[in-house]
Design a binder for these strands. Structure first.
Lengths: 190, 190
DNA sequence: GTTAAAAAGTGATATACATCACATTTTTTT
DNA sequence: AAAAAAATGTGATGTATATCACTTTTTAAC
């Protein structure tokens, strides 16, 4: 178990440096948890107590429309952060679902804990700032791909960027991420 | 002119508190500039020296595809931040354009300056962290709208959220932001 | 104030993609 | 290993939206 916390520290130290003193303050704010395939981290209408850092497994966040169709906001795998950030930040009930595509292990961090850590340890404010920046940039790229590319071009780009993910999950989930029907996606390529 | 810097300080102090000492360190990193309608802040292929905080006016960031069509990533008005963040963060040539829809006034901040400020003044690391978080959340909402809504629903939502913006800019730019042709957008509503 | 340019509206037609229905294959459960 | 469930493939058909071509209206430039 201690090794899992080691992984978390390493994740921070890829971007900032932490003293052992600082780590002693940080670590207790993180709670280690496991869930099995199909279990939920977040359900709509429920409070969003945490954001999550994935140790292993595969998780998806998604909205469900009136017709019951899923629209995937994010696939979160090893080393990714995930939550319903809108609800988490505003401390309101969730509007999206987050659940496990595979058995998964992760750390939980509450909003209160995050803010305490950022106030006490400037390096951590910088860590979250830089991470958030990269997240922002990633989402801008995705918006551009939705605006400028056809569904098939987006599929090709994803195949190129994350070939293993495309193998790892049912194609209907890939379709729900790309914004195309599973039938149409099934007709792409040779 | 000094009042413009006052506006900037107020913008920071909406989120964090700063001492006069700290402000003396921060302010000199910001350069005040003005540009007229149609002038560029960023052009593809050019280095991206700065991110920009808009004092007044109206600016757009956009990609141009092979066919020459514009796809708008962001409208930036008073109190907004804008740049080619992908290029800015990685310090590579711009892949999008940023130009003025109206005469505009803004402050410029280099990547180096931003990092210095964040290292020296923890409150500023927190400011940029929190801002970046909100930006991230906004982009997630936009991705969901692109995945779940029809073009007309997106138009209605924008009319509801930013009615003044829809009045203020040519509809073809609204279309380029929503991911719909100007002809189709022109056929919406009664 | 006149001229030029840009924006906006609209019909006709084309197309990317969705939806429906059902067969086939693969994976999971017991 | 058998049965059930989920995923995938594919034809037929429908639809939202794009594109093209042109006119009218509004805004900007001289």
């Amino acid at each position: 178990m201690q090794d899992k916390y080691q992984l978390l520290r390493q994740h921070f130290e890829e971007i900032v440096t932490l003293t052992d003193e600082e780590w002693k303050i940080i670590a207790p704010h993180f709670e280690h948890k496991k869930l099995k395939k199909h279990q939920f981290l977040i359900q709509t209408g429920q409070p969003v107590d945490c954001e999550f850092w994935i140790i292993n497994g595969l998780i998806k966040s998604y909205a469900v429309d009136e017709k019951g169709s899923e629209h995937i906001l994010q696939f979160a795998m090893e080393d990714y952060w995930v939550s319903d950030y809108y609800a988490f930040q505003h401390q309101i009930p969730a509007t999206i679902f987050v659940d496990c595509i595979e058995d998964s292990e992760f750390f939980c961090l509450s909003l209160e804990s995050r803010e305490i850590i950022c106030q006490k340890i400037p390096a951590m404010a910088n860590f979250f700032r830089i991470k958030s920046n990269y997240g922002f940039i990633g989402l801008q790229q995705r918006i551009l791909s939705l605006l400028t590319q056809t569904a098939e071009e987006r599929y090709d780009a994803l195949l190129f960027k994350l070939p293993k993910l495309v193998q790892r999950v049912p194609k209907k989930l890939i379709a729900a991420y790309l914004g195309v029907s599973r039938e149409t996606l099934s007709r792409f390529k040779g």
